[in-house]
């Protein structure tokens, strides 16, 4: 299990290859890549800056991974989240889950993303033609995370 918060981009293929190397128990790998869109709430987005809470960020993601391990039989997991300045089409986040079968890999990967979006201390500030603005939290993200209750809380 590995959690990384970094400014640099990542190579999802290389990360998946590294994670599964030498482990023939793995029968399924689910991966999610989050990408910066060039439009949000109807406005063009020229780029964004991701701020985080160093120390708590890593702890919060590790706690989320630990919860996923309690719920599904996961063989391995990796979370990489970028911070700093990002441009449209840049990758923001990678979640990879390895399991014996696909059901657990899919479910745990979606759970990790839903919880990460509502519990890990990251904040986006986007640059638009009207100036820079902090992105507001979405109720739909809370609803997505709530689907996994009550076990998660």
């Amino acid at each position: 299990m590995s959690v990384r918060v970094q400014g640099e981009d990542f190579d999802a293929g290389a990360e998946i290859a590294r994670l599964r190397r030498g482990n023939a128990k793995i029968g399924a790998i689910a991966a999610f890549v989050g990408v910066v869109r060039d439009v949000n709430d109807g406005d063009p987005v020229a780029g964004m800056t991701l701020e985080h809470y160093p120390g708590m960020t890593e702890r919060a993601i590790e706690a989320i991974v630990a919860q996923a391990r309690l719920r599904w039989r996961i063989l391995d997991a990796l979370v990489i989240h970028r911070v700093g300045k990002l441009a449209p089409a840049d990758q923001i986040v990678l979640v990879v889950v390895a399991a014996t079968h696909r059901g657990e890999a899919f479910a745990a990967c979606e759970f990790l993303m839903d919880y990460l979006k509502t519990r890990a201390p990251f904040w986006k500030k986007e640059r638009t033609p009207g100036g820079s603005r902090w992105v507001d939290a979405r109720a739909s993200d809370d609803e997505a995370a709530a689907r996994w209750e009550p076990v998660g809380r």
């Binding site: 985080h52 989240h81 890990a120 990251f122 904040w123 902090w134 992105v135 939290a137």
Partner: peptide, 10 residues
């Protein structure tokens, strides 16, 4: 003690 807005990562 940290005080912050609802998070918006991912």
């Amino acid at each position: 003690v940290a005080v912050f807005p609802p998070v918006t990562g991912g």
